[in-house]
Amino acid sequence: MTSSPAETAVAALLDGAGSLNELALRATLRSHADDHGVDATVVDVVLPFLHEIGAAWERGTHTVAQEHFASQVIRGWLIGEALSGAAEHGPGISPVVLACPPGERHDLGLLCFHVLITRAGVPSRFLGSDTPLPGLGDVCRVVAASGVVVAATRSRVFEAHGGALRMLASHYPLAIGGAGADPEVAERVRATPLSSDMRESVANLVGWYARVTAAA
């Protein structure tokens, strides 16, 4: 069976990770983005690759060092695409703030979300992993956030900070995402759970932001 362009790109990234070849990793991302667009590369290549490199580490075919190396190359590419794709927003525009709570170090999925909503015209502030929740609240006040997205791969991370998340939700619309964001946890922390489908989550947030800004 013939592999799709995305599957071919994921395989090439795995090869590049295995050989610690930064140029090959960057070339694969750039080539797929040139041919199929940045958004498709993020959703159909980067996210599946992150899953596959984790599985490869569990199988013992890739080391932790190779996984970390490839992840940092991809992080650099994602940040570059977020910066180049960001629209100019005038004063008074309230961004969405994105963060992973304390105890959550896996932030590349949220960074992918940041790239996609930024390119869709939603102003966003990405704080990354292990963000202290009081500090997250401070950022929201400074930028007059229109909403907050908190992401974690395990539900117990949300549970551990339930009180702080409920407090945050009393001041700003709060959504939670990632593998740990099930509806029961979302209800307990008074948040809206994002879909596990990245495209659907992005579309929902873009629509929500349009309604918020139209009502402002």
Rank of each mutant, 00 (worst) to 15 (best):
residue 24 A to R: 14
residue 12 A to Q: 14
residue 7 E to A: 15
residue 1 M to W: 07
residue 152 A to T: 03
residue 55 A to C: 06
residue 65 A to I: 09
residue 42 V to C: 10
residue 99 A to I: 07
residue 156 R to Q: 11
residue 113 F to T: 05
residue 108 L to D: 13
residue 186 A to K: 09
residue 152 A to F: 08
residue 28 T to N: 13
residue 56 A to T: 06
residue 178 G to V: 06
residue 150 V to Q: 10
residue 208 W to D: 12
residue 156 R to C: 09
residue 47 L to C: 12
residue 106 H to P: 15
residue 136 L to H: 07
residue 47 L to N: 12
residue 180 G to L: 00
residue 184 E to T: 00
residue 151 A to L: 06
residue 121 G to H: 01
residue 80 G to H: 05
residue 101 P to F: 13
residue 76 G to S: 11
residue 23 L to I: 12
residue 44 D to H: 04
residue 91 P to V: 01
residue 216 A to H: 08
residue 25 L to G: 14
residue 143 V to E: 09
residue 136 L to M: 10
residue 122 V to N: 04
residue 32 H to K: 04
residue 72 Q to T: 01
residue 187 E to F: 06
residue 46 V to I: 13
residue 128 G to H: 05
residue 45 V to Q: 08
residue 21 N to P: 13
residue 154 R to H: 13
residue 88 E to K: 02
residue 169 A to T: 02
residue 21 N to W: 09
residue 212 V to L: 12
residue 194 L to E: 05
residue 23 L to G: 15
residue 115 V to A: 12
residue 44 D to S: 10
residue 111 L to W: 12
residue 10 V to W: 07
residue 199 R to V: 04
residue 65 A to R: 01
residue 138 D to T: 08
residue 128 G to E: 02
residue 87 A to Y: 04
residue 73 V to E: 03
residue 213 T to A: 03
residue 139 V to L: 05
residue 80 G to L: 09
residue 80 G to P: 07
residue 94 S to A: 12
residue 190 R to I: 06
residue 47 L to G: 10
residue 2 T to P: 15
residue 188 R to T: 07
residue 157 V to K: 00
residue 46 V to L: 10
residue 63 T to D: 09
residue 172 Y to N: 08
residue 106 H to L: 15
residue 26 R to P: 15
residue 4 S to M: 07
residue 135 G to M: 05
residue 84 S to I: 00
residue 189 V to L: 08
residue 64 V to K: 00
residue 47 L to Q: 14
residue 46 V to K: 00
residue 191 A to S: 13
residue 73 V to T: 06
residue 82 A to E: 11
residue 200 E to P: 02
residue 190 R to V: 11
residue 140 C to S: 11
residue 40 A to L: 08
residue 157 V to G: 01
residue 69 F to I: 03
residue 52 E to Y: 00
residue 160 A to K: 01
residue 112 C to Q: 12
residue 85 G to V: 00
residue 19 S to V: 09
residue 97 V to Y: 13
residue 183 P to V: 04
residue 162 G to V: 01
residue 37 G to K: 00
residue 213 T to Q: 02
residue 74 I to E: 05
residue 203 A to E: 14
residue 104 E to Q: 15
residue 87 A to Q: 06
residue 30 R to G: 14
residue 40 A to E: 12
residue 186 A to G: 14
residue 4 S to H: 10
residue 123 P to L: 04
residue 55 A to K: 02
residue 134 P to N: 11
residue 120 A to H: 08
residue 8 T to A: 15
residue 126 F to K: 02
residue 116 L to G: 14
residue 118 T to E: 12
residue 56 A to N: 06
